[in-house]
Structure formats: C-alpha cells, structure tokens
C-alpha cells in the first residue's frame, strides 16, 4: 500500500507539471496581443508597452516564464493580472458562487439520482424501471443550453417560482434552478449506474445465499446489497463533484452567476494570461485531488482493490 501511494504521488506530481506546462504553452499560443488592447481606443506608446512586457517578463522564453510561475506558485503567490489586480483575490470572489452551485447540484444528484437508481434497480423490469431508463436517455439528448433557456422560460418567466438569473436572492433561491439544470445530466448517469450496480449485486451468488439463509429483506437489501453496490456509484460521485467544482461555463453564463467558469471563459477571450493560468492551475489541482480521493475510496470500500 505504501509503495503504491508513493508511486501514485510521484505520478500525480508529474501529471501536474505536464498539464501546467501544456496550459502555459496554450496561453502563450493564444492569438492577439493582450498588452496592446489594454489601452482601449487610444493606442499605448511603444515605451509603455515595452515597460509592461518587461514587468510581466513577457519577453523571456516560455520555459523561463513557466519556472518563474511554478516558483511563485510554491510560495502561494498566483501573481497579478494585466491590470494589476491580484489573481488570488479575483478567484476568491468567484469561487464561493461556483462552490454553492456545484454543491447544490451535487446534492440534487445524490438524493434524486441514487434514489431513482435504487427504485429502478430494486424493481427491475417494472414500469418504474422503464420510466427511469427512458428519462435518463431523454435528458442526455438535449443540449444543456436548450435545457437552461427552457427552464428559465417555464419556471422563471411563466411560473415566476424562482429568480430568472443573478445571485441577488442568495442561496438557495438563486441557485435552485441553475443547479437543477446542471444536475440533470449527472443525475441521469448516477441513476443508471446505481440501477446497474444494484441489479448486478442482487443477482450475485452471495445475495442468493443470504436469501437462502432466511435473512429479512431489510437486512439483505439495507446492509449487504447497498454496501456492495455502492463502490462504482461513490467513485462516480467523487469524480463528478470534482468536475462540478471546476465551474460550469454554460450554466453560469445563462443564469448570470459570477463563478469561475464564467471568469475563465472571459479571461480566455480577452487573453488575460495570468488569470487563465491561475484558474487552470486550480482546476488541475481539483482534478488530481479527485483522483486521489477516488483511489482511496476504492481501497477503503473494497479490500480486493487494495494495492501492494
């Protein structure tokens, strides 16, 4: 287990450097000059442009910039954007919005997704099962922005149940509709996964043995089936939470939630290099952290997956 953990950590560090360097190269490759657009309508004088380029080390080669960035990062410094604002502070104002949205969506997925999946799995081949299956396929075939504007029109404009956009009504009211729209896709996947896993476990030999032993339905399902079918579902839910925390560009855009997804998209569009790199680094850390959690979760829940 220790050897596995060490190897895994080394691999994670390598992937971290690989992705951050790729991101650095990608930002470098973004077309257009971010400095010359700072002046707006009035072109900046060449001296000013040169001074700013020097200030941000933009004339240095790519690798030297990258190492400077990694060095700063290790001391906890995300740097400043092209307007001199601290990237860390900008992120700090955006992240709570994304976290609220992600966690709300995730809770909806856990409660409704797992609930529907259990219902379908335990009542295999009934109309409930079929209904859940049809629903999960139906939602996957509608693009999220179509779903979002439709939900906005129906629940926000026509029924006036929830605010149409923005965060002025605070959590949870402002987040209910966007989180539901965001959750629907993962919810469908969770429901199908749970159903499949429950069906598999129910038809396994050890469950048959438990029935034969004369255990009550409550014990068989409540303890043995649930525990043994939870592994793939929990793995998926962990990965999904990581993905949700990365921000939802489309949902945040349509519902006008000032989260990191929106900030990333805007920053890429205006070539705001330092901000893009800052957000992207945070996203990778979330991604890597998720994969560690998934590994740990797997070996905790299923002794057979323990590595040596």
């Amino acid at each position: 287990m220790l050897r596995f953990t060490i190897r895994r950590v080394i691999e994670l560090v390598l992937v971290f450097f690989g992705v951050t360097f790729a991101i650095y190269a990608a930002v470098w490759a973004l077309p257009g000059d971010p400095i010359s657009s700072l002046g707006g309508d009035q072109p900046l004088s060449p001296q000013v442009v040169e001074r700013i380029r020097e200030l941000y080390h933009l004339n240095d080669p790519l690798w030297s910039q990258y190492f400077r960035y990694i060095g700063n990062l290790l001391t906890g410094d995300l740097g400043v954007d092209f307007r001199g604002r601290s990237v860390a502070e900008r992120l700090a104002t955006r992240w709570p919005v994304t976290i609220r949205l992600a966690v709300t969506a995730w809770i909806i997925q856990v409660v409704i997704g797992v609930g529907l999946g259990l219902l379908a799995g335990l009542r295999k081949n009934t109309w409930i099962d079929r209904g859940v299956l049809i629903m999960t396929i139906l939602v996957a075939s509608v693009p999220i922005f179509v779903m979002a504007v439709t939900a906005q029109l129906v629940f926000g404009v026509k029924l006036s149940l929830v605010p149409i956009a923005g965060v002025n009504d605070g959590w949870p009211l402002s987040y209910l509709l966007p989180a539901t729209v965001l959750a629907i896709y993962g919810l469908a996947a969770v429901a199908r996964l749970t159903r499949g896993s429950v069906v598999d476990t129910m038809s396994s030999d050890f469950v048959r043995a438990l029935w034969a032993k004369g255990l009550t339905r409550r014990r068989v399902i409540g303890i043995h089936v649930l525990r043994n079918s939870s592994i793939p579902v929990l793995t998926y839910l962990a990965i999904d939470l990581g993905a949700l925390l990365g921000g939802a560009v489309v949902t945040e855009g349509i519902f006008n939630l000032p989260g990191v997804g929106q900030l990333l998209f805007e920053s890429i569009r205006v070539h705001e290099g330092p901000t893009v790199v800052g957000i992207a680094t945070a996203l990778i850390l979330i991604f890597l952290l998720t994969s560690v959690v998934v590994d740990l979760l797997n070996s905790l829940l299923d002794p057979r997956i323990r590595h040596d």
Partner: peptide, 24 residues
C-alpha cells in the same frame, strides 16, 4: 504507465482553453 499519465494530462486539461487554442 506513461500512456496512462498522458491520458490523465488530456483529461485534466481545461477543455475550453484547449478548444480555443486548437481552433485558432
């Protein structure tokens, strides 16, 4: 191992950034 980590790099890379750079 190397290929698995390469796959990780692609999975961890922000899709939007990659898409914009690639399209450009």
């Amino acid at each position: 191992s190397v290929l698995a980590r390469l796959t990780d790099v692609f999975l961890g890379f922000p899709f939007l950034l990659g898409a914009i750079v690639a399209l450009n």
